[in-house]
Amino acid sequence: MSDATLDLRLPRIVHPLDDLPEEKLYHSGLGRMTLTPAVRLSLFALRGYLGLMILLVAWRVIGL
């Protein structure tokens, strides 16, 4: 089989920007994420961490 024949039987490569948009997994109807215990715990830990960092900055500012 020649290369030319092979090429005809295979698809041409389409650049993503030249392709039609595909339907993605996110759509606005999904709304907010379900707050499972793991998500709640993670966000709680993040709040604690950020609070600690703010206190640290305050410590430095007062120290200066």
Binding site: L6, L10, P11, R12, V14, D18, D19, L20, P21, E22
Partner: peptide, 20 residues
Amino acid sequence: MTPTALSRQFPASRLGWRHR
């Protein structure tokens, strides 16, 4: 055939190495 139809009919995993 539209470009999208082409890219969906032949997913990358089924392409030869040159096309990959």
